[in-house]
Write a protein that binds this DNA or RNA. Structure first.
Length: 189
DNA sequence: AACACGATGGACT
DNA sequence: GTCCATCGTGTTA
């Protein structure tokens, strides 16, 4: 079983996001089946971290597809993204939820409540920090294609009050229609 | 050097 | 539903 090749990520972030729901992500002894993602597109997406240009933090977003972009949010939660699109296009997919499919014992230590339905929880379950930002998705963090296509639901992205109204409404949050490891379903359909 | 703030999560009412 | 911990980052001066 080989990790997904960089070409998989060399497309629009929304298209990659659709194909990532159901895919497997493996890191530090835990494998998760991805259940929820958000696409951050480029250019013109006012919710995108790279909307103001290149900075040291978001540098991986500007690089080649198929790499991780990990950042610290609110001073305590790490967020895992997969860089998409051609090099020079600062687009990415935020990984927001997952179901453990391997490494259950380790997972239980990291998430005693068994919950993995938010981006901070997911990065914590995989024990990822900014130390892994910029690394390829074929190493410490590895991603594998899904075996079965899930039924998708979509809705607006979470926590982007600073973005334009149109970008706040864009249904670029995608989730498995039936998984329990998905955040609020209130605006998903 | 100072400052404002965030792609959240957990505790609590 | 509300409150807020906590700190790296980007901006302004």
């Amino acid at each position: 079983m080989n990790p997904l090749a960089p070409s998989f990520y060399d497309r629009d972030a929304l298209d990659v996001a659709r194909d990532l729901v159901g895919a497997l992500v493996c890191a530090n002894g835990v494998t998760l089946r991805i259940t929820e993602v958000e696409a951050y597109r480029f250019p013109g997406d006012t919710a995108n971290h790279a909307r103001m240009g290149r900075t040291p933090r978001n540098a991986p977003m500007w690089g080649p597809p198929g790499h991780a972009y990990v950042y610290l949010c609110y001073g305590m939660h790490h967020m895992l993204n997969f860089v998409t699109g051609p090099e020079g296009h600062a687009a990415a997919v935020l990984i927001r939820g997952g179901e453990p499919v391997d490494g259950h014992d380790v997972f239980r230590v990291r998430r005693a409540d068994g919950r993995c339905d938010g981006p901070g929880k997911l990065a914590g379950a995989l024990a990822l920090t900014t130390a892994s930002s910029g690394t390829p998705l074929t190493g410490e963090i590895a991603v594998f294609a899904r075996r079965h296509e899930p039924t998708l639901v979509s809705g607006p992205r979470i926590g982007i009050d600073y973005a334009s109204e149109a970008d706040q409404l864009a249904p670029w949050r995608l989730a498995d229609a039936v998984s329990g490891q998905v955040g609020s379903r209130k605006r998903l359909r």
